[in-house]
Design a binder for these strands. Structure first.
Lengths: 259, 259
DNA sequence: CTACTCTAAAGGTACGGACATTTGAGGGAG
DNA sequence: CTCCCTCAAATGTCCGTACCTTTAGAGTAG
């Protein structure tokens, strides 16, 4: 309700400031029940309706809100997180881009040996592996169950990190100086087991993505990962164009895309 | 060049008419060298700059033109070699690659109007659409349920085709001379309804991919498609490497990867 | 209590004007 | 001839207004 004033002298366009302000208020859970009308925003922020609409247009194209004629805009039902396909993506970054607060519950974090995983990484069966198991939440609601194995020889510097609020890849880069440069993953559609469904707290009748990933950095295997993502809160998205092949969906700029 | 007058009494918004008019002129090769400025369009069509910008915004979001400050809009990259891409393409191409015989059962094939789909394609609600519904089989076993809507104005030449053994995109190219050059798709994980499960003959407890796709050719919307793919027979696979970009491959049962 | 009608409110469309910022080309200085 | 500056042109931003269409709810008739 604060409606923090916008900076008219800033180089950032007014509508963009307004857009970010609304995302922030939304992330704070302010518009849980109903969104604000255009005219109300005009009054609140002292800008023209044109500017308000430009900001709302962006939010709509990002799938944050939905609008219809004659009705007030509403917060899009459980903001579905869209994941651009194909890149070395970070689930963390995707949730961030969706404007949702996120954190993880670390369920396991130790060093162990796993013959099956070691084999998949092309390592000796007895190779010690750092194992990290997290329940990832976005907006106080479980989103994914994430399990990662990394060779201890490379990932030892990670052992002191706190993974409740940071991304694994960010820690890999800063603490161990490792940046992934290649990988392979495959995505399956599955029905979660009752145990998994309980952990993810997803309603019955929902499906999930099961993602296996093997990543390398400079030819060395760095991680083997299994992620189970709720299908009712997550979607893969791809734009494609001739010549360029797949490219990441852009979030910035004035591009408008109908979700 | 004619700058055909817009119909102000039409139910279709002015900016949408302008958008389509520009796409038509562009498809006719009129703007091969340089595009027209906003102010020029204001004069040509006798509409406000606001309306022109709304039309250009759509064209930009479809990747037809690119615009920058201080310069006139330009026609975006020359669409050279066009080939359908994405999860759907890799799906059927890799069925071929796997050496599995595939064919389709055409369940519906007619011309109709659908306001919802027309809206998604950015067309008028009453626009006639060619509708094709197929059950796709690979190796005598159902694999996917495929439904496509295409504007009849473009897809009329397809009506005589037999889609039990040929690809829609191949027919589009040979019969209508249309090659898709852009598109967007998103992939969801869902649990098929009992009716869908019966059609796909998939065992209980299996999930499925639900794929929505919107494709364009030279800025004109060509198809809106929904495909439901059995999750127990299909998986998405992605290879990625720094620098080289990335590619989407497909895996079925034992993963089939194209180099 | 139900069903219909009417109306206020909200977003969608379209018009107008004004200024800011960037680009690109032309002209002048060296 | 080259380099730099200036300036017109083009898009981006922002404001204001008006009207139309749809929605949802209040009010009324049955």
């Amino acid at each position: 309700m604060a409606a923090q004033a916008l900076d008219r002298s800033s180089a950032q366009p007014l509508w963009q400031q307004l857009q970010h302000a609304l995302v922030a208020r939304l992330a704070a859970g302010e518009f849980a029940d109903h969104f604000v009308g255009e005219l109300a925003l005009v009054d609140e922020y002292g800008v023209s309706r044109h500017t308000v609409r430009q900001a709302l247009r962006q939010l709509r194209s990002d799938g944050v809100i939905v609008a219809e004629r004659g009705r007030q805009p509403r917060v899009a039902p459980p903001p579905e997180i869209q994941q651009p396909m194909g890149a070395l993506y970070s689930l963390f970054a995707s949730v961030e881009a969706a404007g949702l607060p996120q954190h993880s519950v670390v369920r396991r974090f130790d060093t162990r040996a796993d013959a099956v995983v070691a084999d998949r990484l092309g390592l000796d069966a007895s190779t010690p592996l750092v194992y990290l198991e997290r329940l990832r939440l976005a907006g106080d609601e479980p989103l994914a169950l994430d399990r990662v194995w990394l060779p201890a020889a490379l990932a030892a510097p990670l052992l002191g990190a706190d993974f409740t609020h940071t991304s694994l890849y960010a820690e890999l880069a800063t603490r161990a100086g490792i940046r992934l440069d290649r990988g392979h993953e495959d995505v399956h559609a599955v029905v979660p087991t009752p145990a998994e469904r309980a952990q993810l707290r997803c309603p019955p009748g929902t499906a999930a993505f099961s993602i296996n990933r093997r990543s390398l950095a400079q030819g060395r295997p760095v991680e083997w990962r299994h992620t189970l993502v709720r299908g009712d809160r997550f979607a893969l998205a791809a734009d494609f164009a001739a010549g360029t092949g797949y490219r990441l969906t852009q979030a910035e700029g004035t591009a408008v895309r109908s979700g």
